[in-house]
Each structure stands twice: as structure tokens, then as C-alpha cells.
């Protein structure tokens, strides 16, 4: 596998986990606006998000724009799977059908 493709895949995975941490932070009881951000899950989530942005920028060096777009769309599968694992968000009919249509749309747009 092309190393840049691998970096892009790892980057999407990191971005997926960053969303989980951000949501974890968002589920804490609200104390103040600043407290919404200055806590371990959110700070770690932002750090991972930043790492993912840098990794994706790096991946663009060796992979075509279209390929990155397709790889990035894996996030639309990964995030619901992680949300199910960590938050027990259910896979409802609407979610599954909607996400399949979204993925088809991204594929049609880019390929």
C-alpha cells in the first residue's frame, strides 16, 4: 500500500477518535463556557484533530485529491461505528440508508 494512502487512512481514524473525545467532553455537565473547552477529553480531541489535519496535508503530497476525498469519507462509517461502541448510538434505518446515500453521492461526485 502506498505510504501516503496509509497516512490518509490513519488520519481519518485519528479524526474519528477525536470526534469521540469531543463528544465525551460535550456530555459533561455544563459549568461554564470555558469549562466546556478546558477539560482533558476536549483538549485531547482538539490535539488529535490538529494532528489529523497535518497528517492529511502531508498525505496530499503523494495521493490525488480525489483519493483523499474518498478516504476521508470513510469517516462517515467510522464515526457512527465508534458512536455505537462508545455511546450506544443505535444504527437506525434512517441513519444507515442516509449514510449509504451520502457515500454514494461522494463517490459519484469524485469518481
Amino acid at each position: 500500500m502506498n505510504i501516503y494512502v496509509l497516512i490518509a487512512v490513519v488520519s481519518v481514524t485519528i479524526a474519528g477518535f477525536s470526534q469521540i473525545l469531543l463528544k465525551k467532553g460535550a456530555m459533561r455537565p455544563h459549568k461554564s463556557f470555558l469549562d466546556d473547552y478546558l477539560n482533558a477529553p476536549v483538549i485531547t480531541g482538539y490535539a488529535l484533530m490538529f494532528t489529523s489535519v497535518l497528517a492529511t496535508m502531508f498525505a496530499y503530497r503523494g495521493v490525488r485529491y480525489m483519493t483523499i476525498q474518498i478516504i476521508e469519507s470513510l469517516g462517515y462509517i467510522l464515526v457512527p461505528v465508534l458512536s455505537y461502541i462508545f455511546f450506544k448510538e443505535r444504527f437506525t434505518r434512517n441513519k444507515v440508508i442516509g449514510i449509504i446515500i451520502i457515500l454514494a453521492g461522494i463517490a459519484v461526485y469524485n469518481i
Binding site: N94, K95, I97, G98, I100, L103, A107
Partner: peptide, 22 residues
């Protein structure tokens, strides 16, 4: 092709949002 892709993405997003209690 791009327009068709965008329309599909919009439809997909609407379907996800129609999810009750999301």
C-alpha cells in the same frame, strides 16, 4: 456528475435528519 453527487449527498443528509429523536 458532480451535480448528481451533490443531490445524493443532500438527500442522504435529509434522510439522516428525518431520524426521530436524533
Amino acid at each position: 456528475k458532480q451535480m448528481a453527487g451533490i443531490i445524493l449527498v443532500v438527500i442522504g443528509t435529509v434522510v439522516v435528519n428525518l431520524q426521530p429523536g436524533s
